[in-house]
Amino acid sequence: MFVVGTNTFAPKRSASATVVRTGVDYAVGTWTVTALVVIIPALIIGWFAARKRVLAIVEMRNGYTGEFPVVANIPIEGE
C-alpha cells in the first residue's frame, strides 16, 4: 500500500499467500485460481509440443535478419 507523501510501501506478500487470498474471494477469485490451474499446465505442455518445430525454424533462419539488417552497413568514405 502506498502511503501518501512518502515512498514507503507495505511489505511484499509471498506469491502463495496472494494465490490463497485470491482463491478465498468467492466467485471471481475462485474462477481465477481455477483458470490458472488449467492454463499454466496447458502453456507448459504446448511449449514442449511446439519446441522442436520452433527450434527447427530458428535453425533455418540462422543468420537472416530480414529486409533491414541488424548491423548497419559501414559508411563508404566520401559520403
Rank of each mutant, 00 (worst) to 15 (best):
M1H: 06
F2Y: 08
V3A: 13
G5S: 00
G5W: 01
T6L: 10
T8W: 01
A10L: 13
K12F: 01
K12T: 02
S14G: 04
A15Q: 09
T18Y: 08
T18H: 12
V19G: 00
R21E: 11
G23I: 09
D25P: 08
D25V: 00
Y26C: 07
Y26S: 14
A27P: 00
A27M: 01
V28G: 01
G29C: 07
T30I: 10
T30K: 05
T30R: 05
T32F: 13
V33T: 00
T34G: 03
A35E: 06
A35F: 02
L36R: 01
V37H: 04
V37S: 14
V37P: 08
V38H: 11
V38T: 08
I39G: 06
I39S: 08
I40R: 09
I40T: 05
P41Y: 03
L43P: 05
I45T: 06
G46H: 11
G46A: 15
G46Q: 12
F48I: 06
R51K: 11
R51S: 13
V54P: 05
V54F: 14
V54I: 15
L55E: 10
L55W: 02
A56C: 14
V58G: 01
E59D: 04
M60P: 01
M60A: 08
R61M: 05
G63K: 01
G63F: 00
Y64S: 09
T65N: 15
E67T: 13
F68M: 02
P69Q: 15
P69K: 10
V70F: 01
V70D: 03
A72P: 08
N73W: 03
P75I: 04
P75G: 00
I76W: 12
E77P: 00
G78K: 09
